[in-house]
Simulated scan of single mutants.
Amino acid sequence: MCRIAAYAGPSIPLENIIVRPKHSLLEQSQHATEAKLAVNGDGFGIAWYDRDETPGLYRDVLPAWADGNLTSLCRMVRSRLFIAHVRASTVGETSRQNCHPFSYRRWSFCHNGQIPHFAAIERKLEADLPDHLYSARQGSTDSEMIFLTLLANGLDDDPERAMAATLAKIGSGPDPVKITCTFSDGATLYGFRHASRGTAPTLYASGSLDNGGKAFASEPLDGGSWAAIPANKIISLGINQTA
């Protein structure tokens, strides 16, 4: 299973979430404690927002701990909202196009989980995409298809309705569908967990951090106040949200 960390609030260096905490995302890439696999070494990526509506995106196939540029980038780049991801692949080869986060216009998205029956529904999901989203597909993962299907189902206008419509299209199979994701339009950060059966992959929301911001993470980054977000409910964090 992959690991996710995301932040919304006053602008901070990316390293404050990705590198510096005791159980940072970088630490989780090798020593995850709440996943089937402790090591998440099939690539990583970061999407961050600054002045432009469209997020910056940095992705690579290297394990996060093996990229010598990552800690320097995270030290120098500041952002008010960002999403980061380390990958343990289930669907799709290890390639830059299959590394998360995915982005389209103002939206960014990353995912932990899988659609076990994806091969049986992939062509139908792809055929249902409007032309502009069909052309935007770059990789072969179920995760990117979830993102594009959310966009096709009206993510711009109503995230909750888009998620419900997307889950309905995915349906169920002999093995449980598991979707934990974070996504953003640059103004609001969203977190969501779902499992068609059993328990959804973990995602926690922090309390107010020392600078007033808040974070989502697959596993708590430190010993502060973290609470598991409820399943089947989209939780939102705004840049200026303090409660």
Rank of each mutant, 00 (worst) to 15 (best):
Y58G: 00
A227G: 00
T166D: 01
N232D: 15
D185G: 13
F118G: 05
G113T: 01
S11L: 00
G43W: 04
A195P: 09
E122V: 09
H111S: 04
H194T: 06
S225C: 09
I46H: 05
C2E: 01
G223F: 00
I18A: 13
D157V: 11
R78E: 10
P174K: 12
L125Q: 06
I146F: 05
P174W: 01
S24A: 11
A32T: 02
D210E: 14
N16M: 10
G173L: 11
C110A: 15
E144M: 12
C2V: 06
Y104C: 05
N211A: 03
Q241R: 13
A162W: 00
R106Q: 15
S218N: 01
A64F: 12
L125G: 07
P201Y: 02
E93R: 12
R96H: 00
G224K: 09
H111R: 06
R78H: 09
C99P: 03
L151W: 15
P55W: 03
A47W: 03
D50K: 05
P220S: 06
P55M: 04
V19R: 11
S89N: 06
R96I: 15
I83S: 07
A5E: 01
Q30Y: 02
A162F: 02
T242Y: 02
F147T: 06
L221W: 01
N98P: 09
D157M: 11
R197D: 11
N16D: 07
F147A: 09
P101A: 13
A32V: 04
G92H: 05
D67L: 07
A47K: 08
H111L: 07
F44I: 04
P174M: 10
P130Y: 15
T149K: 14
C99L: 07
Y58I: 08
N112V: 05
A164T: 09
H100Y: 04
S196C: 14
Q241A: 06
K124A: 08
L70G: 09
I121T: 10
K124G: 00
D60W: 10
L209D: 09
Y204H: 14
Y204A: 03
G186D: 08
F118K: 02
I179A: 08
Y49L: 01
N211Q: 08
H117W: 03
L221G: 02
L125V: 05
L203F: 11
H132P: 07
C74G: 08
A243H: 04
L155M: 14
G154L: 13
R20A: 13
L37G: 00
D210Y: 11
V86N: 11
M1T: 14
M1K: 00
L151F: 14
I18W: 05
D157S: 15
R75F: 02
T202D: 08
A152T: 14
G212H: 10
G224T: 06
S172T: 15
G139W: 05
D222K: 13
K233R: 14
L37Q: 06
K22S: 12
R20P: 01
P201A: 04
Y204W: 08
R20Y: 12
T166P: 04
E53R: 13
T202C: 10
A168Y: 04
A200H: 00
H23L: 14
I17V: 15
P230H: 03
S140G: 13
W107T: 12
L167G: 05
